[in-house]
Design a protein around this nucleic acid. Structure first.
Lengths: 207, 207
DNA sequence: AATTATATATGACAAGGTGTCATTTGTCAA
DNA sequence: TTGACAAATGACACCTTGTCATATATAATT
């Protein structure tokens, strides 16, 4: 987390700095980003940077968290709109993300994040989903989800279902970048996979 | 790919260098690894390094490819042993990998690779699986797999099934690290997910 | 208002990494 | 022996990082 100093400075200055960071992290991925570029672009001294943050990553994950938070809010709002239909919620969310990636303001930043998705970045987005126990976030979601049609025996299986959907969704998002597919094709592929997940990969219901 | 020069030097020298690289990439992940450490540890001059490789990544992916190749061979051999049962093959493979991660010689290297898995590293391992068309590798596998019990309508769905299994498997592997779970627990979680995938996430068979 | 205490800003600096290149050393064939 | 080519070297210029002593601004106190 940024240091207290960062939250003490004026909102203007803070936003200038965040914009500079966003610009740098849109240029290249985290590991290639240069503090010196951010500092230059924000018009602050090198020393100041270290008065606000511990390091590059400190700043990066602060920014990324804002994106993640927005995403989670979108997700919940879609889920409500679709009356708890988790599958279609994921599909609509997937579509929404692909469209967001095309925008000029966020596209490159997210692109770099997803192209270099690792467990830490993933966790920022899926925070709480893949933990062993129920997190608050998952708990909040859980109540909104219609479990009638879910083929689950207990709560543990429910968590795994959510995790599976999450992972497959993330992976399809990344594929959209790496294969440079048009949105339509990505969406088709994704829906195919969701369909497969729903109906099961195995022919026999009981074996 | 390494330059021709690298393949011209003596096998001894080559192996010394690869060992030095392995050591450094076991210490930290790719982006934090230092050429200067590799060079020092291998006892060659800085200039020589650049006579063999274009950069750090050139060397890294050469090494990683060797691991990936071994994995693929293991996979095929297990698949044959299990008469094309793809689900149990994945489970046995998963188990095998977890055990390999515990070994002293490969553990740290693989750990760093998986903890920082991105699409490029992933692609080294799953190479050919997630492409739009049938790759040679997938084609070779395809013949070995018993499709009788697979709930697939066509070849396209088959590719997606393979991709789903791959992605879920990778993710569970990474979880094993990040959550520092004992092998037994990881395996249980994984099997739960495979089971869910097989039977389908949705209750109704036809909707 | 003057003084003191505290918070913030600065940029020079040492340490250390990178990739290059002119030069040296080694090898092999004529 | 000589010449041609391949491989090895390490000094070098350039760059980034994180720190720290110092300077400046802001708030608090008398």
């Amino acid at each position: 987390m940024p240091k207290q100093t960062f939250f003490n400075i004026s909102k203007d200055k803070r936003e200038t700095l965040l914009n500079a960071a966003q610009k740098e992290f849109s240029r290249v991925q985290l590991s290639e980003a240069l503090i010196s570029n951010i500092v230059k672009s924000a018009g602050i001294s090198r020393g100041s940077f270290y008065q606000y943050f511990n390091d590059k990553e400190d700043l990066y994950f602060f920014l990324l968290n804002k994106y993640a938070k927005e995403s989670k809010e979108s997700f919940i709002s879609i889920l409500k709109k679709l009356n708890g239909d988790i599958f279609n919620t994921f599909i609509e969310m997937f579509h929404l993300m692909l469209k967001k990636f095309k925008t000029k303001e966020h596209g490159d930043f997210l692109r770099n994040a997803f192209l270099n998705m690792n467990h830490k970045i993933e966790n920022t987005f899926t925070n709480g989903f893949n933990k062993r126990k129920f997190s608050n976030e998952l708990l909040e979601l859980s109540d909104l989800i219609d479990k009638e049609n879910l083929n689950i025996a207990d709560e543990k299986e429910f968590r795994h279902v959510m995790q599976i959907l999450m992972v497959i969704t993330l992976h399809n998002t990344i594929s959209n970048f790496t294969n440079e597919m048009p949105i339509k094709e990505s969406l088709e592929n994704y829906i195919t996979e969701i369909h497969l997940l729903k109906k099961g990969l195995c022919k026999e219901r009981r074996r």
